[in-house]
Design a protein around this nucleic acid. Structure first.
Lengths: 356, 356
DNA sequence: TTAAATTGTGTGTGCGCACACACAAGAAAA
DNA sequence: TTTTCTTGTGTGTGCGCACACACAATTTAA
């Protein structure tokens, strides 16, 4: 372990004081061109790497990350990223990184807007949120430009100059992957029932992308043998309705072999299905919610594609720490793995959700 | 951001000096019982959490982690954990954590032993290695007891008091998972050809475990419809031999639908197979080696189970940093996820291998 | 020409903690 | 009783860096 090079070493070698070296490093100006060149040259020569530990200690400034998320416990999916963020905050708090949380109603653009304003008022150093409502999100991003708050998006990407980084899944590709798994389960031919259990499905780009991915994959695989039936259900909290709808469809179309639930609500479908002598349906859904996992273990759900929602939140905070504390550049897009989860390998992912 | 509590605050509140508080925290003794109790009580009351940044800075000691691994570039699989370790070292070097690497010949117990001695001679603070040779590994662990070097095992676990932590896959469960995937591919019935492309297969517990997992799963699924044929091939570097062997087996047994290559050498099989009008075989293998990935994309390998070899190495170093720098307790066993990798989701895992 | 602003450089302090050292008081050994 | 050891406590320095401040040498303005 050849002793680390410090700014003091640089100073000596360059024949200046540490203050001058410091000014060069932080580009604070007030250094003559020659001296600056000399210092930089010595830094290169000695391969200087600043001691980030000492740096953060001396920096001694708290970083506040504003977090704008759907209200906790209002929807099981949306709890995941928030909890991931909190876990991350816990593990970087000694760098002086804190969260300022502001919750909003998942189905209310007005509330989103109100919460956004409240959050900005607290002057956070950065912002993290999922752009659930496109119009309001763009307004928020515009506002961020003014107050110069860098932003990380999770869950859905939006093109905007103020977006420093997007962390989330590749929705199209997750549709492709679903196609692969379902085509395997269908063994050559059959119909896929695509279920959008959501409100305002038409506006949800990520759901559209998943459908597109599925259709593209199946078409490329075997255009004539596979069919996709799409059904949007806004009233997904009504089990009787869901069940009867499903039965109607099964009567109307034969050869429906699999169901693709495009979001995390596959468990709602399973809960709704009455035990009858139905043809066996293979069900594919998303995300490791407790209910989904339960049905996966019971064999009522066959596949879950893990979009790593919890890890999305975790990474968002970790990355902002890297950005502020360690001065790292962040990639514009970070797609997380699409894990194929079956009963036989679910335990590891559940464990990882807790850990990190 | 309520200002953090420091040892100075504790000292004031308890009416003692910081030195005394320090002695209490580090249990260095030389503190009277009453004072110690008082200090602890104040620490509790103020919810003191030491500033780990300041702590590591002041600690100012280099930690050397001894790494004993198969020689780089001798086997593509074994490169992964080592590269993971180097990546990890890079990301924690500012804590003063360094690696002392010592390589050995993958097939030579003698060389392993020699390298182990050479490594111990450099007095590392901890040791990481895969216990490839059981006898020699146990000797090494015994020696570690004497010199008091805590050890982390990767890839294979061994019971020994000096083993602080094992990081790796659950081999049995990976066999189970393979069973699940292959049974799906076989659609109800058929034979699995289990290929051990390795030397000294009989001594390799992890290969045995995989076989057991596969057999248990298939038996439980449908005892009568599935059969496992096992074939050990020590001469796996000879393509002609492999190809003819496979053809013999296909002639001898009908209804072989799938091949389970129990380690990372599935690509060797694919390379050996001559393009003939064979019945289509679904092939399952392990690990994201470049060659395996290539054949996965080409559709010649159907599934890869990712044992996260690279991440194993990464975690080993990260965990030791946590242990030494942040005084965290490590779990005795850390099983990494068994990722199901198909052509449609491979990219993310490849990307993660590079990143972390 | 002189005062004021600007530029270039060095010094000093503090971030919170770890640890060596100093030193007093009492206990044990001589 | 004197000496040595032990125990309990406080003080001081340094880890490497960030940043405020001091101050001289210029340059610009008045």
């Amino acid at each position: 372990m050849n002793k680390r090079v410090t700014i003091k070493d640089i100073a000596e070698q360059a024949g200046v004081s540490v203050g001058t070296v410091d000014r060069v490093i932080h580009e604070r100006g007030r250094v003559s061109a020659e001296v600056k060149a000399k210092v930089l040259q010595v830094m290169q020569a000695l391969d200087f790497e600043p001691n980030l530990i000492a740096s953060t200690l001396a920096f001694n400034r708290a970083i506040q990350i504003g977090v704008l998320m759907p209200r906790l416990h209002s929807d099981p999916y949306w709890d995941l990223p928030l909890l991931g963020m909190r876990r991350a905050q816990h593990s970087v708090k000694h760098y002086g990184v804190g969260l300022v949380e502001q919750m909003f109603d998942l189905f209310s653009p007005q509330d989103f807007k109100k919460s956004a304003i409240a959050l900005i008022d607290q002057k956070p150093d950065a912002l993290v949120f999922p752009p659930i409502f496109l119009k309001e999100s763009l307004e928020l991003l515009d506002h961020c430009v003014e107050v110069k708050v860098p932003t990380i998006l999770v869950n859905t990407d939006v093109e905007h100059p103020q977006v420093m980084s997007y962390i989330g899944q590749d929705s199209y590709q997750s549709g492709v992957l679903a196609g692969k798994l379902l085509s395997m389960a269908m063994n050559g031919s059959g119909k896929v029932l695509l279920l959008n259990l959501d409100k305002e499905t038409l506006n949800a780009k990520h759901l559209m992308d998943k459908e597109l991915g599925l259709r593209d994959f199946l078409a490329q695989k075997d255009k004539n043998s596979f069919t996709v039936l799409r059904q949007d259900v806004e009233d997904f909290d009504n089990p009787e309705r869901l069940d009867s709808l499903l039965n109607e469809l099964l009567q109307q179309y034969d050869d429906i072999k699999t169901v693709f639930v495009t979001n995390s609500r596959a468990y709602k479908l399973v809960e709704a299905i009455q035990e009858q002598a139905q043809p066996h349906l293979n069900i594919l859904g998303f995300d490791l919610l407790p209910n989904n996992l339960h049905f996966l273990q019971m064999g009522k759900i066959d596949f879950l594609i893990n979009q790593n929602a919890s890890y999305q939140g975790y990474l968002a905070i970790k990355n902002l720490t890297d950005y502020f504390i360690f001065k790292k550049q962040l990639p514009r897009v970070q797609h997380l793995p699409l894990d194929i989860v079956v009963a036989e390998n679910a335990a590891y992912y559940v464990q990882r959700e807790q850990g990190n």
